[in-house]
């Protein structure tokens, strides 16, 4: 059993109005010193077996096919633990 984390973020050049809204809200709540916020998605993939290279390849394929839209998003894959 292993857990693989896929983080999906909008590409840097794509406007993220949600992140901007969060960044604007923070000072109102008393949090200072924040210059920017980007919002993304985190997927926790529970594997039946170990996170070997074949399993990670499969997760990368999942990210490429469904979890991320690579036209506008980048993704990273890592093993938790």
């Amino acid at each position: 059993m292993a857990r693989v984390i896929v983080d999906v973020m909008l590409k840097p050049e794509i406007l993220d109005p949600q992140g901007q809204a969060i960044a604007r809200a923070l000072p109102r709540l008393g949090f200072s010193g924040v210059s920017a916020v980007r919002q993304g998605k985190r997927f926790e993939i529970e594997l039946d077996g170990p996170a070997d290279e074949a399993a990670l390849d499969s997760v990368r394929k999942m990210a490429e096919t469904l979890l991320a839209n690579t036209v506008i998003e980048d993704y990273t894959v890592r093993v938790e633990g």
Partner: peptide, 17 residues
């Protein structure tokens, strides 16, 4: 159609939210 790559690009959250 964009997600299916029959058309290029993507549609994202309105700038105004």
């Amino acid at each position: 159609l964009c997600e299916a790559h029959l058309l290029p690009g993507a549609l994202t959250r309105n700038a105004s939210l």
